[in-house]
Design a protein around this nucleic acid. Structure first.
Lengths: 251, 251
DNA sequence: TCACATTTGTCCGTATGTATC
DNA sequence: AGATACATACGGACAAATGTG
């Protein structure tokens, strides 16, 4: 154990690329760099930071994975500040769920409990715009189903919109992460049946998708009637069915 | 809108470093690479994957930030497979909380609701080992306080242990993320008073720390008595106080 | 439509600091 | 203390992609 390291602060604390990514991150936090802004090219960044291009690239990888920037190739391309980093969190959640070997049952159980909690606060805090967004979501899903398509994205989005209607961003993040896992499991496990444009009748996914939409509609109605108990019951029933589907798919 | 891109899968899917990091990630998911295993050096990886070192380095940056590996310098160093990626998630959560400008009140509110939920399932599902871990946590915190130190880490850990006692890893992840934000806020906002070894009496942090420990003890007792209502009430009161402290520190 | 400039993606070679044996 | 192994960082170069005129 080195005394110098213990008592005195590290002279060269972080690796260069970490300093670079940290600096840029700070600029974003402080609002100096805003979503939509474009960073200078790698070469220009290297010149300004007085480091090599390799170092800049490693810093950009960090920012990219953290969800702060997108990188576009070609003329007038370059690193672009993104508007949200939530999607990135969801991706990491996915990794964690796979690594921690979480079962469908555990996921469903927690999902039910947390979304019931969310539902409570939706009834209290939802604004007109939230209700409208939920209604639009259901309409969009219905349209998809009428045109013989699966409304998987819309069905997931419904739950995210619910969380948003709590008016508490923490719930948004938590639910968003869980929904991302559900979406991932569904898309990975559902066999894609090549029936686009083909009307050879319903398949399993279509039927489930349709049921989900009507479930959502019933839940929304219960919310509008401020009927907590009914809304909770419907939600639990709905999520339980989805959970059973997940379970069966994972066999 | 390019038809080729819409209908058919991408021919050249990903950048090389993404393919490399993806490949290694898969090996970890599949259990071929286990925690504690050491990856070959950058040069060796470059040779085996038949790519350049820069490409390998960018892949390693991704794996490092995703929490899959640690990188050690020096002889017989190299990339080391880590045992958990949860800490990384927490770091990204931190970014999100800062970026989304979440208030102390919103954080506290959600924390109370979610931890109350957790508490419910702790009473149902906690095993003897969980109870023991909670008791040890409290003892450790008491010892720290007796020796005039702040038990900040232990106090945060108490809540993580509660989540663990639900026996549902989803709750663990969710609570762990929230606690990481709380810890970050507390450590960043609390002025470090240089009184190590100095017994010039209590300061604000010490007092709060001590109160927290006795709160935790009371909560644990209520859990042992299977007294749901009391446990919930105590927890809510405790978290509300912490929340007020956060609020006052953020001014 | 087509050539051009810009920018990322990738490779190679080299030098340096640092931790381990 | 010296040798070794490794990550870190630099510079130059070319290919590929993409927007622009």
């Amino acid at each position: 154990m080195n005394v110098k390291k213990e008592l005195f602060s590290p002279i060269k604390s972080k690796r260069t690329f970490e300093q670079v990514s940290g600096k840029i991150k700070t600029l974003i936090f402080d609002g100096v760099l805003k979503p939509g802004d474009r960073l200078p090219s790698e070469i220009e960044l290297a010149r300004q930071f007085m480091v090599s291009r390799q170092t800049i690239r490693e810093a950009l990888r960090i920012l990219e994975l953290s969800g702060f920037i997108n990188v576009q190739k070609g003329g007038s391309g370059g690193p672009l500040i993104k508007d949200t980093i939530l999607n990135t969190i969801n991706n990491l959640f996915l990794d964690a769920f796979r690594l921690e070997k979480i079962t469908a049952a555990e996921l469903t159980f927690a999902r039910i409990e947390i979304e019931k909690l969310v539902l409570y606060h939706v009834i209290d805090n939802a604004e007109a715009s939230d209700i409208q967004a939920l209604q639009q979501n259901i309409q969009k899903a219905k349209l998809k189903i009428e045109s013989n398509a699966i409304s998987a994205d819309e069905n997931i989005e419904f739950h995210n919109l619910l969380a948003k209607a709590t008016k508490n961003p923490v719930f948004e993040i938590v639910v968003g992460s869980i929904e991302a896992v559900v979406r991932d499991l569904l898309t990975r496990l559902t066999p894609d049946i090549e029936t686009s444009g083909d009307s050879t009748g319903y398949n399993e996914g279509m039927l489930k998708s349709k049921n989900a939409v009507s479930d959502h509609e019933a839940i929304l109605n219960a919310i509008l009637n401020k009927n907590r108990e009914k809304a909770c019951l419907l939600l639990e029933q709905h999520l339980r069915e989805v959970g059973e589907r997940l379970q069966s798919l994972m066999d």
